[in-house]
Write a protein that binds this DNA or RNA. Structure first.
Length: 248
DNA sequence: TGCCATGTTAAACT
DNA sequence: GAGTTTAACATGGC
């Protein structure tokens, strides 16, 4: 469910509810749900893996964690608890197994939109600057750093590194500058590819490394290893992904 | 059936 | 106190 592109799709799916008033609230989310009653949705926004339901004076933030899901109009998980249910005159939205929080702060004060790889304000220049401040960190950990690449998840990490032919255990400071810049720009562009594929239900078909056993370039077996401080699964080809490890 | 995983936070360790 | 590890959350596919 998560990763940034899915949040963008959710925003599109909920577009019919923009401007509509909440007529009924329910669910087991531990927030003051009734604050949303009779409030109109000002807009929906996304920041990385956060989904933001904006009301005139506050925001409900949804994070889907690992298993979160949603449905519109039909409660698809009849046997499962509804975390949050919002009823409008034009339909109903259900959220399941997600983290829900109310934000009272102005979003511009909390979020630096330029760190979100799918936001118009995305700044590859800032991302590269932040990377260069952590020269000893491994690129597999840094791509998952939501303060640098908000919205990038483990699948996108693996696919970007495969596409760039960079080994996940490469040290940031050892990667040539032009290559690093290319990784940064690909983190964003690949997220849009991911979005387009997901929209057409062909995402899995287009994955080249994540969850795969054979390198589509070299036909040699891919390595599957939990890498870096974050110990998340990495799938990579020892043959065609270069391991940059010497910081000059 | 048991294990594992597109994720994050916080508690419990050292 | 910093840094690291573990638990918790809770679903579905293999």
């Amino acid at each position: 469910m998560p990763e940034g592109p899915t949040m963008v799709l959710l925003k599109e799916a909920l577009a019919p509810f923009k401007g509509k008033k909440v007529l009924e609230v329910a669910g087991n989310a531990k927030i003051e749900k009734e604050r949303a009653l009779n409030q109109p949705i000002k807009e929906f926004r996304t920041f990385g893996k956060h989904f933001l339901i904006c009301f005139p004076s506050f925001t409900i933030r949804i994070h889907f964690l690992l298993f979160g899901s949603f449905s519109i109009d039909e409660q698809v998980r009849l046997n499962k608890a509804v975390r949050l249910k919002l009823v409008f005159d034009v339909g109903t939205v259900y959220f399941y197994t997600c983290a829900v929080k109310i934000l009272d702060e102005s979003l511009d004060d909390i979020y630096d939109w330029s760190t979100d790889v799918m936001n118009k304000a995305w700044s590859p220049r800032k991302a590269k600057q932040k990377l260069l401040q952590h020269p000893k960190e491994l690129i597999c950990d840094e791509l998952l750093d939501q303060d640098i690449f908000a919205g990038v998840g483990n699948i996108i990490k693996n696919e970007v590194l495969f596409k760039m032919r960079v080994h996940p255990e490469s040290k940031v400071g050892a990667i040539p500058s032009t290559k690093l810049a290319k990784i940064v720009s690909t983190a964003s562009s690949y997220s849009f590819d991911f979005l387009a594929w997901r929209r057409e239900f062909v995402l899995i078909k287009n994955l080249k490394a994540h969850g795969k056993k054979i390198c589509p370039r070299c036909q040699v077996p891919l390595i599957k290893k939990h890498t870096g401080k974050k110990k998340r699964r990495s799938f990579f080809c020892k043959n065609c992904q270069v391991k940059y490890s010497t910081i000059s």
